[in-house]
Amino acid sequence: MKRLVKLLTTAALVLTLFGTTGLVMAQETSYGSAGALSDECLTLEEMLTYAIQDEYAAEAEYAKIIEVYGAVKPYSNIVKAETQHISALVPLFEANAISVPVNDAASHVVLPASLKESYAIGVEAEIKNIDMYNRFLEQQLPDNVRTVFESLKAASEKHLVAFQRKANR
């Protein structure tokens, strides 16, 4: 219960302070988690595409934050995880004869005004990522896809905790 209250408090803080700006792909409602959460009828190809787009976006934003602010935690750890998440998704595209989308996320990165602001944005991004995977896991999925989505959701839950810790300091 305490965890839920803390999560909701952090989410409210993020929305109050930053509205919907600052996320890498916030303006693009058909990209990544934003697309997944607004899409009424999801196909396997769409779920895989939204998932990899969201991982591309996180990797690109975290890499840019490291470039500007240095190899600070949790970014120095999480950016490596995002690369692994992408690597976990690519074989699912291949196994289902779906083309892997081009990674153009770096061209969409919006750098937060400060490192502190980036943590709050990280909280919001991880919440949306978890919501996306929860929505996918409600669908009929091949076992290998379900396993990867469950793993990526669990990783995002850990990332969320790391960002909440930093945002609440």
Rank of each mutant, 00 (worst) to 15 (best):
L8I: 06
L8P: 00
L8M: 15
T9C: 10
T9S: 15
T9E: 15
T10H: 07
A11E: 13
A11C: 12
A12L: 15
L13R: 14
L13K: 15
T16V: 12
L17F: 13
L17E: 12
F18R: 08
G19V: 11
G19K: 10
G19S: 10
T20F: 09
T20P: 01
T21Q: 12
T21K: 13
L23W: 00
V24R: 01
V24Q: 07
M25P: 01
A26G: 10
Q27K: 14
E28T: 01
E28R: 09
E28F: 06
S30Y: 09
G32V: 12
G32R: 06
G35Q: 00
G35E: 02
G35K: 01
L37T: 14
S38G: 10
C41I: 09
T43L: 09
L44I: 08
L44W: 08
E45P: 00
E46F: 00
E46L: 07
M47N: 07
L48S: 02
T49F: 05
Y50A: 01
A51Q: 00
I52E: 01
I52F: 07
Q53R: 03
Y56S: 00
Y56A: 02
A57G: 05
A57D: 04
A58C: 06
E59T: 04
A60P: 03
E61P: 02
Y62C: 04
A63Q: 14
K64H: 10
I65S: 08
E67D: 15
Y69G: 03
G70H: 13
G70W: 13
G70A: 13
G70N: 11
A71N: 12
A71F: 04
A71H: 08
P74W: 08
Y75G: 07
Y75P: 06
S76R: 14
N77V: 14
N77P: 03
N77H: 10
V79W: 06
K80C: 02
K80W: 02
K80D: 13
A81I: 04
A81K: 04
E82V: 09
E82C: 10
E82Q: 13
T83V: 12
Q84F: 12
H85P: 04
I86A: 01
L89Y: 02
V90L: 04
V90R: 13
P91I: 13
L92E: 03
E94P: 00
